[in-house]
Nucleic acid binder design. Sequence first.
RNA 1: GCCGGAGUGGCGGAAUGGCAGACGCAGCCGGCUUAAACCCGGCGGCCGAAAGGCGUGGGGGUUCGAAUCCCUCCUCCGGCACCA
Length: 851
Amino acid sequence: MTQARDPKERSRIERYDPVSIEPRWQARWEELGLHRTDLDDTKNRYYLLTMYPYPSGDIHIGHWYIKTPTDAIARYQRMHGKNVFLPIGFDAFGLPAENAAIKQKISPRDWTMSNVANMRRQLRQMGATFDWSSEVVTSDPDYYKWNQWFFLQFLKAGLAYRANSPVDFCPNDGTLAREQVEGADRRCWRCGAKVEKRDLDQWYLRVTKYADELLDFSEIRFPDPIRMMQTNWIGRSEGGEIVFESAPSEHHPGGEEIRVFTTRPDTLFGATFMVLAPEHQLVGALTAPERREEVAAYVARAQVATEIERLSTDREKTGVAIGADAINPVNGERIPIFIADYVLATYGTGAIMAVPAHDERDFAFAKQFGLAVRQVVAPAGAEGEALSEAYVAHADDEALVNSGEFSGLPADEGGRRIVARLEEQGKGKPAVTYRLRDWLISRQRYWGTPIPVIHCDQCGIVPVPEEDLPVLLPDTVDYAGVGVNPLTRDEAFLNVKCPSCGGPARRETDTMDTFMDSSWYWYRYLSPDRADFPIDHDRVETWTPVQLYTGGAEHAVMHHLYGRMFTKMIRDLGMVRQNEPWRRVFNQGQILGADGERMSKSRGNVQDPDELVSKYGADTVRLFLMFMGPWDQGGPWSPTGMGGVYRFLNRVWALSLDPHYREPGDPDAGTLPDGQDEPAARAALRAAAHRTLRDVTADYEVFHFNTMVAKLMELTNTLFRYRGSSVAGVEDWDEAMRLVLLMLAPAAPHISEELWSRRLAARGEAWSSIHKETWPTVDETAAAESTREVPVQVNGKVRDRITVPADADSAAIEAAVLASPRIQQLLAGRAPDRVIHAGGGRLVNLVLRDG
RNA sequence: GCCGGAGUGGCGGAAUGGCAGACGCAGCCGGCUUAAACCCGGCGGCCGAAAGGCGUGGGGGUUCGAAUCCCUCCUCCGGCACCA
């Protein structure tokens, strides 16, 4: 039998050398077309999408953290007979290319494409099963042509429009969509610069049309936090729109309608003044002559203030009276009108009825300006007391007070009745307001999709005819520096004949928000070469909605919302039938630098995966990323523990290639652990393997990769205890090893392929890839235990453990418990007052009253 | 301030009403080695000599039984920023 070996024999098995194994298998898989998906085979299709990277230059560990578990899912599903499509591409337009071009004096295209080339190489190192034949690069005219085409369809359908309005403007990046302005101090999401306001003519997509529909998540499975964030972002508020009229005065005839939106129509009797946004259209018409100067000064100041700083939300309220009154439609009362910058022009109607008794902001303003506070909602018994702060709470017993004929009604009902009354009189109606804005897509940048319109002095704005698409982005342009769009000075690009009148005209120089590109790329993946249409209708019908979309949570209210909007828009154009682009979105956590900060080159905390791969191999890096914690959690990068995963793979290697090995001098060589006999040892091996298979399968299903790896380690540790024993290498051992390799295959595809091929060779069987194997099924009989340990509690504290046959019923367990000497001692002759059998005999709790 | 998530050994984490700390890292002990590394085996929450007691951010509650459910407070992370 096996015996201690000479130390020299340690090297008798080949060392695990991932660096030589991995590229070999990667080449082989590619050669065999193992990852090429037949898109016309529509059986068992599984569209697995992972966010395409921005070609910043290098793949970093964060990309691996998203993509390698995604690949494990792809491989796992293939082993279940699924026809998995896992495409990849590059989000290749955007500002960094332009900045690099200015700095390094190379063209954004060259910079981008050389990065793409490097990242393709790095992505291949992962050993991921990307189908490169469907690759999409958004800066290719073949791709962005279709952005332009979609834009023209939206224009025709009235879903795209041009408007002059104050827009958020970054000195570096130009126009930003509302979502791209971050934080209280309003900084650019990309460069962090302070965002200003500018009045500009810009292109919008009418996505507010979908506000209500976007709140319906029934056809898409998002993580809860993302759903909440989108819901908040859309910001639906229900209430009423109420029409006040301006009161007649010596300088003004009155009768001008001023509409306000309120979520609290029940407080209408408490309106003691009105506030307009400084930008409100009626400010000019309503302001009394003697107030004009002060009002104009405030309006000017407010403009500057919004441009410069609105840091604090609890700063002092400012505003000025405009010397006019409004008439409260419910009681005919005259209330003074103010302008103040705490009322936003962009929300609701840009005007509010101010109810200081029931709104904190109005209360602060009233205090500041000595205005009346009239309470109109009060909990029972609390009427008439002076308020030291706004009463905004909701009590069950509250009712309207000081509200004319509505007094005494519960607040909710009172509010509804007030709106109903006003509606009869044509002075109000129920209304809904959203925080969501239309999507502003114009960018004053070069490296993006040119917006396909032409400005003609005679004909105005003329869409580029579809047959003239794409409007090509000129490759040779002259950069003046940051903040200047070189297209505005490119005469060859600018000058064009008007498609309508043939006269001289100029091209639009704005390009599209790159979120346009990323809002439909998964449709293009299905037919990247199709020249006559953006998407292949039949394939889109059969392959989408995407089954699972993996990527970062940082896109919760941008990409994830735009993608949904875009699908709804093209659905309304009849191009797709589904309501949502993806069935399920999974957001993995973010890997931070070792310092806990976001990884970035400027902070110098970026982890380069190439370095790790050359040291440990891709399999170890993949497995480590899955093992370090729950996938949706992320966390600061720390390579501590990488060695443990590498050790684990080495142990799998050793077990697989040399089951009989024993340490020199090991006195246990050839013997079985725990005094087991051989049949018991064989059964234990099979049981361990099949229980692990059961658990690992469940973990793969729900993406619990960290525990999946832990359980494989456990099984490996068990096998190691039998290594060199009399059951090493027997049939049951061999079956366990087979299962280990199959379970490992999705996560660590190279080593499992290598060991699989050696295993086949050793058995004299012809080679075939482990990745074409079928996922094994659990043998429940083998997995079943013959005996079971039952913890015994007394009053909830574990006092003993007893071993019973696996099929023991409660009565048998109870008898065994009461027979235990330890328990008898604790009971001291008493009978338990209650015996709890928990979880189908998993645990017994004896309850004794009064100690 | 509002919305959401989280808080468990020295560290990453496991357990989602039933044995707290699986698995791994770091550490300690032993084996192998001339030696070290590698490798192999073992120990490992805290207090205590032991019996035992205490222990999942703090406090309270529900339950035979709570890391897990409820209330409340604290801390950290993400999102929003006067949204009427």
